[in-house]
């Protein structure tokens, strides 16, 4: 099993190259798919946006319209727009909002921190609570308790985020008055949105993780460990946890996507200025430039997370062989998709 330096470098390259390629591909393709959907679906994006913005005062003068088209990067053939906007995005220029006239990149940059803090907090709450409940289900001797605990995630998946958000607001903001109901200024403001978002996200993680734990629990190597005289907590943390986390972290990317989507609802409920609300407002204003910009940013974030997950997987699992790894990652993601 000894390797020369050369082959080690080549192995590393072999591991990294396809993932980098996939990264670039996903971002490019997300741009392309969005572009096609926005531009090939019936209706002129500019007219649609202007009519929302101006109502009856929509300019109809062709000269004025073509000037506006040039300003918003919507001039020329569809193919020209595709290439020009794509190249601009590559330079970091996401164009100008039709609705507000602001630079899309700036708008996103302003909204991103507000969303990020809620998303990270939600992910943390979701994962930690999942771990705790699963651990509890693992060590308990009562079968009914285990079954009840494992029934929690279907509940989490079925709760509409706008509903749980409103209930939380009624209780903690209006009822008890201990947490702010909306806005971003109060340092405690991310808490309720994060809890709201943590429910569905945590439920998805819980399903994959608890399934992996139960599978590990029934596996032969856990039996071997029990026959060795290992205690339950040691069994969980030493033998089960790592094996169960491996398939679970592969869905982190998927969760990031879900978080990004979930913020659209949650930020509207809590009136927070973030990516989600930005997107909703952009769609309401039919502002295709902002929508396009948001999709590119989300695709980049998603790809970065997946890249990190793949690398960490490669580092933690000694069995890492590209083919087998890809298959396992794929399987885990498939399962997560099914259970969402």
């Amino acid at each position: 099993m000894k390797q020369t330096g050369d082959s080690r470098a080549r192995r590393a390259l072999r591991f990294i190259a396809p993932r980098l390629f996939q990264f670039v591909f996903v971002v490019w393709a997300a741009y392309t798919v969005t572009f096609l959907l926005l531009h090939l679906l019936p209706g002129d994006p500019l007219i649609a946006a202007l009519s929302v913005k101006g109502g009856d005062a929509t300019p109809t003068d062709p000269a004025e319209l073509s000037e506006l088209r040039a300003r918003y990067g919507l001039d020329g053939s569809v193919w020209d727009q595709y290439v020009t906007n794509g190249l601009a995005a590559l330079r970091g220029d996401l164009g100008v909002s039709i609705a507000t006239g602001q630079n899309v990149g700036d708008m996103i940059a302003r909204a991103l921190p507000n969303t990020a803090i809620v998303a990270v907090l939600a992910l943390l709450i979701g994962v930690v609570v999942s771990l705790l409940i699963t651990y509890w289900a693992f060590v308990t001797r009562a079968g009914w308790l285990r079954n009840t605990l494992l029934q929690i995630p279907p509940l989490g998946v079925a709760i509409p985020a706008f509903f749980s958000g409103l209930v939380l607001v009624s209780i903690f903001a209006y009822g008890l008055g201990i947490l702010p109901s909306s806005g971003t200024r109060n340092p405690l403001s991310p808490i309720l949105p994060a809890i709201t978002l943590a429910m569905p996200v945590g439920a998805i993680f819980f399903q994959v993780f608890s399934a992996a734990v139960l599978e590990a629990r029934a596996s032969s190597y856990v039996f071997t460990a029990i026959a060795k005289g290992v205690s339950l907590p040691t069994l969980f943390f030493r033998h089960v946890l790592r094996n169960a986390l491996l398939p679970s972290i592969t869905i982190l990317g998927l969760l990031i996507g879900y978080l990004a989507g979930g913020t659209a609802v949650v930020e509207s409920v809590f009136s927070r200025d973030g990516i989600g609300r930005l997107t909703v407002d952009a769609v309401l204003a039919r502002d295709s430039n902002v929508v396009q910009g948001v999709v590119i940013v989300v695709a980049v974030v998603y790809s970065v997370v997946n890249l990190l997950v793949d690398f960490s997987y490669g580092l933690t699992d000694p069995r890492t062989r590209p083919a087998a790894l890809r298959r396992r990652v794929q399987d885990a993601r498939n399962q997560a998709v099914v259970e969402r």
Partner: peptide
């Protein structure tokens, strides 16, 4: 019982391919 398992009573399981923890 745990202090007997592994110490006074050893166990050789059935399937060598899955009876060892793959990550240790």
């Amino acid at each position: 019982l745990r202090s007997l398992r592994g110490a006074r009573i050893g166990f050789v399981p059935q399937d060598p391919s899955s009876s060892l923890n793959p990550l240790i």
